[in-house]
Design a protein around this nucleic acid. Structure first.
Lengths: 141, 141
DNA sequence: CCCGTATGGTTCGCATGCGAAGGAGGTCAA
DNA sequence: TTGACCTCCTTCGCATGCGAACCATACGGG
């Protein structure tokens, strides 16, 4: 059985990638049944925080490239999760709103997110949880 | 200026994603000049650790899906970074080896990786660095 | 020896993720 | 008012990332 190359467990780029891979996969398993991807769920959380954001605002808010967001929003609109309404003041921008279909799942989806975090952190002490989040926030800058 | 939704800085899935995004982008900027992607660099590190692994072994070693690896290995072979040799004992599997072109960059690439880690952790104390890595390793399981 | 099954890789489909270029729509100053 | 410039968004190209279906090869029993 192959093991990890000696240095990789010391490489932060690698560790972050694999930790994200695991967190992403766990969360995916939870929200897949709702017909949503992780990214789509993230967009909904962003819009529940503030409806009517433009794509650029949402992208800044979620730290996402607008090129990436463009496709995500298209698919979400096609699937009926969000609505794009052109801003009457400035026809370049699209204002984004969640639909009733999405809002109906709001409580459940937020619960899934909380539980997913709980599950990921199950083996950590309270101090470790706080510390890990702080270190990651500091890393992001 | 939009800010993060209240809960997201508490959401580990989100934090890990963004921390990875940053680490990945920083490392990409370092590796791009060599004509390599992060994933391709990772494959080289794996093979430098043990030459002649099969794709399945390498995938287990780097925690990668074989479907993902297949395309990566194709592009790396086409670009002359690695060689695939069919195993004479079992013609289903391919043994993987780095080429001279790759080996010539070995020291420099490993230095880039060390420096990238150093840069990411620049603002952390020694204790914090050790702790962050331990927490991430524990998370991966 | 032959069939059923397991395994190693490839391929396809879909969803990110981002750099770069482009098109449509504003803005402002000459 | 018109041309230079800026911004919002879309589109394209390329590289992951992974589930699922497939193909070729190996292996174990009968």
């Amino acid at each position: 059985m192959p093991t990890l190359p000696i240095d990789l467990p010391e490489c932060l780029v690698f560790l972050l990638g694999k930790a994200y891979q695991k967190a992403h996969a766990d969360f995916k398993a939870r929200i897949q049944p709702y017909g949503l991807t992780n990214m789509q769920h993230l967009v909904l959380e962003g819009l529940w925080y503030r409806q009517g954001m433009t794509a650029t605002e949402l992208g800044r808010c979620l730290i996402l490239d607008k090129a990436t967001l463009s496709g995500v929003l298209d698919r979400m609109e096609a699937a009926g999760w969000i609505e794009k309404r052109p801003d009457p003041e400035d026809r370049r921008q699209m204002r984004l709103y969640t639909t009733k279909k999405a809002d109906a799942l709001k409580d459940e989806l937020i619960r899934e997110r909380r539980e997913a975090n709980e599950e990921l952190l199950a083996d950590f002490t309270t101090e470790e949880r706080v510390l890990l989040k702080r270190l990651l926030r500091d890393l992001i800058g």
